[in-house]
């Protein structure tokens, strides 16, 4: 891949908004849901107001909470990713070919995943321990890794079909 800086950022945002969103919508119900309480965010209490304004507990349905977590994770992956792209662009300057082999993009999952795990704690998308033993970790890891690989597969292939401009102008879409 030979990216311009704009191309990199546009590509990441586009892939997250298309492949990322569709895949997250599909996979979330099948992810190992962490027990109640480890999911943060605003309004996380699984309760609902009765019509007399008395809070009543409803049977716990984790799905909406899982969705919030996966979508917020996806959003942060895209957002924090912009900073990553700046770093990659800098590193790219040291390559004579000024390119970015697909393998680099694939393995970037590891450093980006580690940083993202911390970021979702800092932003309270996920509560609980930062340790990898956290009950929320399997969900996070499976979601991120599968989304990442799919985005990557889309990028090395069908992306060119969707936009010829992307193929010829450094990954730029607009």
């Amino acid at each position: 891949m030979t990216f311009s800086l704009r191309g990199r950022i546009q590509t990441r945002l586009f892939l997250a908004a298309t492949v990322g969103v569709i895949w997250t919508a599909i996979i979330t119900p099948f992810l190992p849901s962490p027990p109640m309480g480890s999911i943060g965010g605003v309004g996380m209490v699984p309760m609902q107001m009765s019509k007399f304004m008395v809070p009543i507990a409803v049977p716990y349905n984790p799905i909406p909470f899982d969705y919030r977590m996966t979508f917020e994770t996806l959003g942060l992956m895209a957002l924090v990713g912009i900073a990553w792209e700046l770093l990659y662009h800098l590193l790219q300057q040291f390559r004579w070919d000024k390119d970015w082999p697909p393998l680099f993009t694939l393995v970037a999952l590891v450093p980006e995943g580690i940083v993202l795990w911390y970021v979702i704690h800092l932003t309270h998308v996920e509560n609980g321990t930062w340790a990898l033993t956290s009950s929320g970790f399997p969900m996070f890891a499976i979601h991120l890794a599968t989304t990442w690989v799919l985005m990557w597969l889309f990028m090395v292939g069908p992306m060119k079909v969707v936009s010829l401009k992307w193929r010829f102008e450094g990954g730029e879409l607009v």
Partner: peptide, 8 residues
């Protein structure tokens, strides 16, 4: 160089 093929 690869960069001429559409890149920076």
């Amino acid at each position: 160089t690869k960069a001429c093929y559409g890149g920076q």
